[in-house]
């Protein structure tokens, strides 16, 4: 188990390193481009050279990468070109806002999709199963940017119940959270529900469930005590992988609702070529994604004794 954990963490560090090299090469390979992006297209050639000189861009590539990585690990991401402040000052509050959004999405989506998945998988092929399965295909087919528009057409312009933007300019408002969270749940729950259903349906065909039913246990007890415990191992991994999906989803949702979060920051930075913000955001995104995958793998091994003891 310990070996496995250290292997996984080692792989995680390796991934982060490779990603950082790729990112560095992609964005900072030619110092000239960096200067243009930082100082703007109308800056003079001398100003660019001076800036490059001062920030050590005439050192060899590997040396530049080393010092860049060193700064990165210390949390010094450079200055944002657009906001004129250190990147970390912009990044952390934005990340916190997205964490709030993600928390509410998960807090509602996970119980909902697990319950629906278990209900559907309990009796495979029943009417309830077909409704839930087809319903989850439909909700997963409507992309987030489409459902943002549809839902705001209904709730903002039609019924006038909810505000159309979630910029939170006057402090935190629950009302402004409802639509973004709803869009993310609608798009994401279908996948988890279908995985839970598949896992549950598989467990229901096993011998020990048949035995439990045949020995006369109440159906409720068979489900709660025997089936659920085994059926929920696979969805656990899927749920952790949803964090990766969520990071994509928040970009669209935050952009549409003008929510001041991490996804919107990354998008703005990309559109404005704000390269140090792009670098910091991309590394944070990959870190969150890789860390959640690592936890998923370790958790899966821990939960599943068949893997743990072999």
């Amino acid at each position: 188990m310990l070996i496995m954990i250290s292997k996984r963490i080692g792989f995680m560090v390796l991934t982060m390193l490779v990603v950082s090299i790729l990112l560095f090469l992609l964005l900072e390979y030619s110092p000239g481009n960096v200067a243009v992006k930082v100082l703007g297209p109308y800056s003079s050639e001398e100003a660019r050279q001076l800036w490059l000189e001062r920030h050590g861009y005439f050192e060899p590539l590997w040396w530049r990468y080393g010092s860049w990585l060193g700064n990165f690990i210390n949390g010094e991401f450079g200055d944002s070109v657009r906001f004129r402040v250190p990147v970390s000052e912009v990044l952390w509050p934005r990340l916190w806002n997205t964490a709030i959004l993600g928390f509410w999405t998960f807090a509602i989506m996970i119980p909902l999709s697990l319950i629906l998945g278990v209900l559907a998988g309990m009796r495979e092929g029943s009417r309830l199963d077909r409704i839930i399965s087809v319903g989850s295909i439909i909700t997963t087919s409507v992309p987030e940017f489409a459902s943002t528009v549809l839902l705001s057409a209904i709730f903002v312009f039609g019924l006038k119940w909810l505000p159309g933007t979630s910029s939170m300019t006057s402090g935190f408002e629950v009302k402004q959270m409802i639509l973004p969270v709803m869009v993310l749940i609608i798009y994401d729950f279908g996948y988890v529900a279908r995985m839970t259903r598949a896992s549950m349906a598989e467990v229901m065909t096993t011998h020990y469930i048949r035995t439990a039913i045949l020995k006369g246990l109440p159906y409720r007890q068979v489900i709660m005590k025997h089936a659920l415990r085994n059926a929920l191992i696979a969805p656990f991994t899927v749920i952790m992988l949803q964090i990766n999906w969520l990071l994509s989803g928040v970009i669209v949702v935050e952009f549409f609702f003008a929510y001041k979060g991490f996804g919107a920051l990354l998008l703005e930075a990309s559109l404005n070529q704000d390269i140090f913000v792009i670098e910091a955001c991309a590394m944070v995104a990959v870190f969150v994604a890789v860390a959640s995958q690592t936890i998923a793998d370790i958790g899966y091994t821990y939960l599943n004794p068949r893997i743990r003891f072999t």
Partner: peptide, 11 residues
Amino acid sequence: LSFPVLVLYII
């Protein structure tokens, strides 16, 4: 694959 897809596309 460890990249969040949309982040990869945007970059």
